[in-house]
Nucleic acid binder design. Sequence first.
DNA 1: CCCCGAACTGTTAGCGCAAACACTCGGATA
DNA 2: TATCCGAGTGTTTGCGCTAACAGTTCGGGG
Lengths: 347, 347
Amino acid sequence: MTQQVSGQTFSERPRAAVMEDVAARAGVSAMTVSRVLNTPEKVRPDTRARVLDAVRELGYRPNFAARSLVTGRSGALGVVSFDTTLYGPASTLHGIEQAARTHDYLVTIVNVTTLNRRSIAEAVNRLRFQSVDGVVIVAPHESAADGLHHLPPDLPAVVVGARESLPVPVAAVDQAAGAVRATRHLLSLGHNTVWHLSGPEDWIDASARVEGWRSVLTAEGRQIPDPLRGDWSARSGFEAGRQLARDPEVTAIFAANDHMATGVLRALREAGRRVPEDVSVVGFDDVPEAPYLWPPLSTVRQNFTEVGRLAFRLLLERIDGRTATPHRMIEPELVVRESTGARPTPR
Amino acid sequence: MTQQVSGQTFSERPRAAVMEDVAARAGVSAMTVSRVLNTPEKVRPDTRARVLDAVRELGYRPNFAARSLVTGRSGALGVVSFDTTLYGPASTLHGIEQAARTHDYLVTIVNVTTLNRRSIAEAVNRLRFQSVDGVVIVAPHESAADGLHHLPPDLPAVVVGARESLPVPVAAVDQAAGAVRATRHLLSLGHNTVWHLSGPEDWIDASARVEGWRSVLTAEGRQIPDPLRGDWSARSGFEAGRQLARDPEVTAIFAANDHMATGVLRALREAGRRVPEDVSVVGFDDVPEAPYLWPPLSTVRQNFTEVGRLAFRLLLERIDGRTATPHRMIEPELVVRESTGARPTPR
DNA sequence: CCCCGAACTGTTAGCGCAAACACTCGGATA
DNA sequence: TATCCGAGTGTTTGCGCTAACAGTTCGGGG
């Protein structure tokens, strides 16, 4: 059955080696090869060596589909995320992937455009049928909660960034604590109160930051201005900033993320209000460019990479059947730069 | 084994339905179910409807592992990327994932910390081990070229952002063309020449932008200043900006990305040089916050999402055995905002 | 010297699906 | 009327692997 001219009819290359080929070459049964690969300690050292030689010589790689069909395991993890172009989710994903890689897991991602019960179920199902061993769900929206309460009970899952206690472990940054730090910092500089530009309504991080900010003002007996609402974008920060710039009472602004703070900075400039001489501004996230804005932005740093690592650790505990820590918080850190200063002395 | 009320979202059933269950419910054989799913036109409409009803009622989803075992396909794609927290790679990944999802492909990612022959081979092998149907390699480094020339010939692959012609299809943005546009724009505003802050040495995008910039200056017979070198970060932009601010000759700066441009803007401010009255600045990328910097940054927009989509399309052609377009360029677009203006009239 | 169990290796079966082939049946064809 | 045809469906088989169980070997205790 010689192959003649090209024709590309059938690959002239011999088929990829399968377990049986390795077994034949090593003079053992396929089962022994399987054992060498999965439970090497149960095979006599010299047999093991012979098998491993054969594996190497044939360039054998086990067929993932076959293994996964019979074991129900895949060595892959699923990540359901909302929008991986945002700085936070992208960094979290990166942290998860990094941790997974060092433990020989692969990461499969599914982005969803909306977070609700149906979209989460659908994404999880897609992953489940790819036989992932577990899923991490990055769910920064309040509206995701419903979906998170109805995850399939037999699939190890971990949630990143959810608020309340769930039937699954949660890894999150303590948003409220970050907001508390930002607000206290501004008050400590002498400002009478702090205006807040919050994130969009449905976001957990946004409302947690509002709560942290409000709690400090309440505790200190300060006036609590109505928070303005943005959508995380620099554009919305700019618009809110224009509004705030008009009010001479405003001397301290806490923006719920750095991009909005960027817009606020610009709006203040354009309105002729100097930062930090006239108005102090604090952001949230500590995006890489924050130190190089003008002026360098004081902000609250969230260690997303750490969150990703934590999420992976929790998931691994789940997969291995160890009882997992139910809820773990990572503390954010206030980073003071030059966008915050003492309250201007009233003339 | 009665089902309780249940919110249809996930089956409480101990075992998920398999094809045989669907077949039994529809009163047909498993093979017919398989045909309904794969080649519906070969099944009589009423039979097809009965089967689809059964599929819906049982919440049946085919088992990927089993299908993949028999077809040799997995419905998963691999993406090898360098650093998915950078804006460009993250957006590209997002574009790939989006395109893949609409075609019912899943995306598995592997990040590498360095791009060389070994790391690429290693990443590709990990993916291959998972039986991905093909891989997209996002390889923005010159040093990746070696690895890209030695990809396994039997695995469909596509490269994003490589420069030269490779044995595999390439999807890329025409970086040089973008640089040409930015440089021409500045010259057309009356500047005598344009200073360039480039990206790090090993990056293809960086050197392509240098070439585009240099070619325009050469063609127009302008003085060609030594380009400064940054590392994409706002920090490096800031440092370069301080240096440039000292030289009164400098009236036009083309920074190789927006983050560096952000740093340049700040350095110029601090040195008391106004933008755009004294110095014009152009960036590259059009990051979301670019319109909200102060002043709004003129820049070159790269449509990363489109690149991702293109890469997926090329890969799909490869997988399906159609002859793929070897090299496809996407044109970047100059976006003029307020950081560029006429050359200051020399006193 | 035999029996027994631990350590190792082999055999059988089947995971869920689709390719290949076999069958059925009604209508068109000669 | 006998035959063919082909659309529609069923049956068999095996993809490559591992779980479960069945042998085999070997050394030590009775």
